[in-house]
Design a protein around this nucleic acid. Structure first.
Lengths: 342, 342
DNA sequence: GCTTTGTTGGAAACCGGTGTCAATCCTGCC
DNA sequence: GGCAGGATTGACACCGGTTTCCAACAAAGC
């Protein structure tokens, strides 16, 4: 091609270079870039050839200024769990790779009194294309309202219905937990302990409901002292288990893996063998699940897929309604569960 | 103030609003924003009052276009370890909070043949203010060259000197490992196994050198079959330990926590008790270290502090040379180490 | 032949800041 | 009082796209 000859000596090519070389106007190039429908196919191809030849990429800063909108996807999270955050990041990246989008992350503090103003300022400033909110702060309707008011497209991730279809990516935690507990019951367990997540978290409530569903379905009464509560941390799981074990359950379901690891510690401290003396089930399937001993039977939360789906919803808002948004959490059987002893 | 009255009806205030209301030119407002020194103090105060009154914030997109530089800090990583990546993100965020900067993350694949072009495209596109590269890809001089060529300020994080002071945030892994191994020796261990990290990683080499330093200082020969190699994964640590344990060491140092967890699994499978039959030491102090049983004695890698330091270097390039860049990794004593049996 | 429809171009304004360079205002100094 | 010279300030082009408005021109329909 002769383009290389005509191309300006230095620097990145601009829209003017493309227009001059392909012999059309700046405006037409802009139409090609923005996929305007009122455009002759032959012209489009000609311009696209020049663009490819020159390696032209529109300047994102200029577009952002003119369009009043940045090609950035935001990720707002409260770092509940490193594995989860990185999993979502990975899913988003897979989706936006080879697009013009980039990922901006914004950790926030759920307990900060200025949380909402912080987020509003962030959205106002960055003029993001869209923003994704991770649990547990995705459960805040006030935060969702801020996104709406800022005119920013958003998606909330969660384990229960939080919003309309267009703004939601969810997983069926309740059913998944019920299934996992039914599996324990099928192995002969009757005294099953449960470590709930923190108050006020929808994910915690959903998981507990799943547990109660399964017990009720099987017609088993929940024994006194076999339900405890933690706040999704290792230490809280450990503390809850110390109390729960007094009630002599044969199995304990913890609402996340980290607490399950805490339960395991508590059992060890009492000289119990897992899974022989106690079966343990977790939720999330983070790295820790496979790396503790015995490897933890747990429910895999399909976080990477959810990240991908959320990114697609943000990038293509027009199809967001139709995009499936419900993901199945599935039971991963490892070695921390055994049949109940007679 | 009467400013509220004069302010345009809708939307965010612009630099023109500020200029009009404070009775100066647009350019003077720009000088105030950019802290230009050639500016009358009285004028500055007047304009600043109007800015505060209006709640004016300069539009980042417009500034990015005019300055040909975005107020974004990039983080390039190869996801070796979720805890580490999030730790750095946390450190960066702490530093840029309350500034105009935002954080863009860019996961990459070390093994991709297009890695360098990917990164170059990313830098060219986003025109970042600065970029931070995490290990292990921070060890790539080719990648650093790409940053330089793109005219992008960069900082490389690592466990050994990789670059000049301005571009480096490092930790003293070699000395820290030597110290940890000396601790084992002080407890009477003589047959000490070592699981090295993957070939070609500077961090792996540094840690191994630290091990050999300590053994040599103590005048202990490294017994045959007590040094293995892994690739920083759980599975590789497990496999390496299976071979190492044939040589009957009384302690094993693994070059990271994940491999240490693998070593622990291997020991369990042989019916060994930790730490009674085998002491285990790790490196990094990720969440897994505290959550396995027994809690892992390990070397804490000060990742959050390093992230903070790196962000400061990027935001204030002029003082980057003077900013201290060497961080101390320190031994965290938990329960996976015991004195050697007689 | 005339109108309609579809496609493209041109000029100019705009998005909201920053750079250049000249104009203006104070000083002190002779 | 007049002037050199530094300290301040403003006019205007520019960053690289998009948008508006309208004109031009071809092919198609009546």
């Amino acid at each position: 091609m002769m383009a290389a000859i005509e191309k300006a000596a230095e620097g990145k090519p601009t829209i003017n270079d493309v227009a001059r070389i392909s012999g059309v106007s700046k405006k037409t190039v802009s139409r090609v870039i923005n996929r305007s429908p009122l455009l002759n196919e032959a012209t489009r191809e000609k311009v696209e050839a020049v663009i490819a030849d020159l390696g032209y990429v529109p300047n994102p800063q200029a577009r952002a200024l003119a369009l009043r909108r940045n090609f950035l996807i935001g990720l707002i999270h409260d770092n509940p769990n490193a594995q989860m955050v990185l999993g979502v990041q990975e899913g988003i990246l897979e989706t936006i790779r080879d697009t013009e989008f980039a990922l901006v992350v914004r950790p926030v503090d759920r307990h900060s009194p200025t949380l909402l103003e912080d987020v509003r300022g962030f959205l106002d400033q960055q003029r993001l294309y869209g923003v994704m909110v991770l649990p547990p702060i995705s459960e805040s309707d006030a935060l969702a309202a801020v996104c709406r008011e800022a005119g920013c497209n958003y998606v909330r991730m969660g384990s229960a219905r939080l919003d309309t279809e267009a703004h939601l990516v969810e997983s069926n935690d309740r059913a998944a937990v019920a299934e996992a507990v039914a599996y324990l019951i099928g192995l002969g367990h009757r005294r099953i302990g449960f470590v709930a997540g923190p108050e006020g978290f929808r994910s915690a409530r959903e998981r507990e409901l799943g547990f109660r569903d399964a017990m009720e379905t099987a017609g088993i009464d929940i024994a006194p002292g076999t339900v405890g509560q933690g706040n999704y941390t290792f230490a809280s799981g450990h503390a809850a288990a110390q109390r729960l074990l007094e009630a002599r359950p044969t199995a304990i379901f913890a609402s996340n893996d980290e607490m399950a690891a805490g339960v395991l510690h508590a059992a060890r401290e009492r000289g119990m063998e897992v899974p022989h003396d106690l079966s343990i089930l977790g939720f999330d399937d983070t790295a820790i699940a496979a790396h503790i001993w015995p490897p933890l039977t747990t429910v895999r939360w399909p976080i990477v897929s959810m990240g991908r789906a959320a990114a697609r919803k943000l990038i293509h808002p027009e199809t967001a309604e139709r995009e499936p948004a419900l993901f199945r959490s599935e039971l991963i059987r490892r070695a921390s569960v055994a049949p109940a002893r007679e």
